[in-house]
């Protein structure tokens, strides 16, 4: 692949960086990234990756745009209410950068299709809003040997981590061995979220993705970054690979993709 004159100009601010250069930009144009969810996290991720000239961007989301999404999901506009989020997203991303091939999946992600989807890509980005999908993506990335870039939100807080289990790193289950019972951890829908916090964590997921494709710097592997917007404090804790992990440990009990359902539970809030 040779960059055209127009591409050299479009990506000139990347190409000027010694860590990127023309070679790095060509890597970006050849890369394939799968973004699960084009909501609060997925919107900034997909926007920055498309702007960066990330060649193939798969986006999965089974929801339609709702007016209550627009406070934070910056890929979708008021005119898009009622449209599938994948279509609304593709429209914007292609207008932003025609170099990017946007592939949309508007069906639900399930245990039956997840491995086939993940297989097509180099990197998977978790911008989902529920635990079953998070465990499903973790397990699929483990079996398909893909890097997983995980972001999560709660009110004014965010979490970010990169899992490279195929390179000997920990997985999401090493960090959180069990899926919380439903009701134990409120969702954004129930608890609220400051829109720009989603933008902060999503943008950092995009940064980690670009670093990964370019193979520069130190990825946030085996580390969990937590952010609190109210105190604007960032902290990083260590994630240890768990030898007893049911998925990636020494004696695994999860040998294929399973279905994960949250157990229901009522707790006082």
């Amino acid at each position: 692949m040779r960059l055209t004159e127009e591409q050299i100009y479009r990506y000139s601010r990347h190409i000027l960086l010694p860590e990127v250069g023309g070679v790095g930009q060509e890597k970006l144009l050849r890369a394939k990234v799968f973004c699960v969810g084009v909501g609060g996290l997925g919107s900034p991720v997909a926007l920055y990756l498309a702007a960066a000239g990330l060649g193939t961007l798969g986006i999965a989301d089974s929801d339609q745009v709702d007016i209550s999404n627009l406070q934070r999901q910056v890929l979708h506009y008021t005119d898009d209410i009622g449209k599938p989020k994948t279509h609304s997203a593709r429209e914007k991303l292609q207008k932003l950068n025609p170099d990017v091939n946007v592939i949309v999946y508007k069906d639900l992600i399930t245990m039956d299709n997840i491995r086939e989807l993940v297989k097509e890509y180099d990197i998977v980005i978790d911008g989902s809003d529920n635990f079953p999908t998070r465990y499903l993506l973790n397990d699929a990335c483990y079996f398909e040997k893909k890097t997983l870039i995980s972001g999560a939100l709660f009110q004014f807080e965010g979490q970010l981590s990169v899992f490279k289990t195929h390179k000997g790193g920990a997985c999401y289950r090493c960090l959180y061995p069990e899926i919380p019972p439903k009701g134990m951890v409120p969702t954004c829908e129930e608890a609220g979220i400051l829109g720009a916090v989603a933008g902060t964590i999503g943008t950092m997921q995009a940064v980690e993705t670009l670093k990964e494709v370019l193979d520069i710097g130190e990825p946030l592997v085996d580390k969990l970054l937590t952010m609190n917007a109210l105190s604007m404090s960032f902290n990083t804790v260590k994630i240890t690979k768990d030898p007893e992990c049911h998925l990636c440990g020494e004696n695994p009990t999860i040998l294929s993709i399973e279905e994960y359902k949250e157990h229901s539970c009522d707790i006082e809030d």
Partner: peptide, 11 residues
């Protein structure tokens, strides 16, 4: 001591 629960929000 940091207490860090799993959170899942993204959309």
């Amino acid at each position: 001591v940091s207490i860090i629960p799993a959170i899942a929000g993204g959309l």
